[in-house]
Each structure stands twice: as C-alpha cells, then as structure tokens.
C-alpha cells in the first residue's frame, strides 16, 4: 500500500465513522451527541441503542458487502457492468425468502439468512450455467443471461406476493430498507463481512492478476477454477446476507466500484479498501436521506439508492465522454 492510498483510506474510515454517527442521530427526530451516554429520557436511550445503532451498523455493513460483491463480480467476469442485483443473485435471494415464508418457514432472522443464501446460490449457479458456451465461461453471456433471469425472477417475486396478498408483508424485501434492523442481524452481517473481506484480502493477488484477461492470468499460474469457486462463495455470502437484512438494494454493487475506479483507476488490490469503505459510506448516507428527507415517511431505500447512484453515474459517464472527446 502506498503512502497516498494509506491517507485516502484513513480519510475514508473517518467519513464512514462520521456517517455512522449521523445515521444514529438523524431520523424523524434528531438526537444530540450526549444522548448516546446520557439520554434525556429512558425512551430516547432505548430508541438510540435498540433501533438507531443496530440500524446504522447494518447499513454500514450491507453497503460494504454489496460494494464488495459488485467488485468481485466485475473482476471475475471482466465486465464493469456486472453486479449481483443486475445478474439476478439478489432477486434469487429475495424469491427464496418469499417462497420459503409462503411454504410455512417462518422468517426468523436465521431462517431468512439461510433461505436468502440458498436462493442467491441457486440463482448464481443458474446464471453461470447460462453463461457457459462451448469455449467455457463467457462474460457477455453472464450479463445478458443474468439481466433476463433477474427480470424473470423479480417478476415471479412480485406475482407471488401479489397473488397471495402478501405485498405489504414483504414490503421491506421488495423495496429495501433497514427499518427493522436488530443486533442479531448485525451479528450475522458482521460474520459475513469478516468472511467476505477476509476472503477478498486472502485472494487479492489472484484477483488482481485476473484483471488481465483470464488466459493471461492462467498463464501466470492462477488456478482459474478454484478462484471462480471462491468468488462465487464470497458473492453469494455478501449478496445473500445483504438481501436477508435489507431486501434488494441495487446500484451500490455496480456504482461504487465504478466511481472508485473512475477517481483512481487501479487494480483489484489497490481499490479493495476504498470500494469497501465507500460502499459503507454511501449506504449510510442513503439511509439517512431515506429517514429524514420527508418527515414521517420513510423513502424506499432501493429506489433512493438507484436515484442517487443513477445521478452520480450519469455525471461520470457524461464527464468521461467529454474527457475522451477532448
């Protein structure tokens, strides 16, 4: 790690910490910093420690997981547009939870997690199957097949919840959000973060080499099959646990790695930390806006994330075109 990336990372950690604090104090009612250790009433203390804190932690970790899942997918598929929500991994997790609940598996936190992981894995395996051609894995097919599959699965989710009159019940799953976050979810997300981040760091050299085309990386001695299995496990864990807590939130996986790479073009290794931290920061700020923008109404997070992110990406694309044209 160079001196400059070190400085950037320390700055980003500070931003994330500030965003966590803002997300804790901000909401329909703003609290003061002193409420954290000397709450004005017992109720205020409970709201902060039982609702706001786990919510902020869940948002921070989910943002990190989604951004990492996007970065991993983009790296292994050699496609900057790959993202777990675009290729249908999130939608698969979503559908598995809805189907599970309707089949009578009560959506306790633990059940939600494993259903979501199974759904994400099944969806990913199907999409990888779709992207296999005679010459092996084809990244373009991953995106084409995944996009169609994602739409298909999402439609089934909506149809199932509509037919069974459970749209309201699955609202959080379908529109995304952290309103019910609790410490048990925070714990499970924490485990997912440790595994995904740890795995990404452990395999960062191989994943960096994969930034060259896959044949070149194989020539350098990377075991492509093993690396693909690692990537699939990490992406499923990241996307599945995010969906189990916060529903299907798009954009982050696609946009955060893009934005980081735009500001600082570099290898997997050099951008890993920045992508993880920016994912956290973005999710926290989006959550804060969702809570506070319109009083008494909580905005749907997936839509908000897509709108904010869409605008940012739009600016980047426009900027880039100009830079290329000049």
């Amino acid at each position: 790690m160079t001196h400059r990336t070190m400085v950037v990372c320390v700055a980003l950690v500070a931003v994330v910490l500030i965003a966590i604090l803002l997300d804790i104090f901000g909401g329909t009612r703003w609290y003061s910093v002193s409420d954290l250790w000397r709450p004005s009433t017992k109720l205020v203390g409970e709201v902060i420690w039982q609702i706001r804190v786990p919510r902020a932690l869940a948002a921070a970790m989910t943002g990190m997981l989604l951004a990492l899942a996007g970065l991993l997918l983009q790296t292994v598929s050699h496609n900057p547009l790959a993202d777990p929500s675009i290729i249908g991994v999130n939608a698969g997790a979503n559908l598995a939870m809805i189907v599970g609940e309707l089949l009578g598996i009560s959506l306790t936190i633990l059940n939600a997690f494993w259903l979501s992981l199974v759904g994400a894995l099944l969806a990913f395996v199907v999409v990888i199957g779709l992207s296999m051609s005679g010459h092996g894995f084809n990244p373009l097919r991953l995106l084409l097949g995944g996009t169609i599959f994602s739409g298909f699965i999402s439609s089934i989710s909506y149809a199932v919840s509509f037919i069974t009159n459970t749209t309201q019940q699955f609202r959080v799953l379908l529109v995304g959000g952290f309103s019910g976050a609790n410490y048990q979810q925070v714990l499970l997300l924490g485990i997912a973060v440790i595994v995904v981040l740890g795995g990404a760091v452990m395999f960062q050299t191989e994943l960096t080499l994969l930034g060259l085309d896959s044949k070149t990386s194989v020539g350098l001695g990377v075991s492509f099959k093993r690396l693909m299995i690692v990537a699939v496990v990490l992406v499923v864990l990241a996307a599945g646990s995010s969906v189990a807590v916060a529903g299907n939130i798009g954009f982050i996986g696609l946009g955060i790695p893009q934005i980081v790479n735009f500001v600082h073009p570099g290898s997997f290794k050099s951008n890993l930390a920045a992508v993880a931290l920016c994912g956290s920061g973005f999710m926290l700020i989006a959550d804060l806006i969702a809570k506070t923008a319109i009083s008494s109404v909580e905005l749907p997070l997936s839509a908000l994330s897509a709108i904010v992110g869409g605008v940012v990406l739009f600016i980047i694309v426009a900027f880039r075109k100009e830079a290329v044209g000049a």
Partner: peptide
C-alpha cells in the same frame, strides 16, 4: 495469449 487486456492504472 493473443490480445491481452491492458488494465488501467
């Protein structure tokens, strides 16, 4: 291999 991708940065 033929036509290797040249990575950015």
């Amino acid at each position: 291999p033929q036509r290797t991708v040249i990575p950015e940065g």
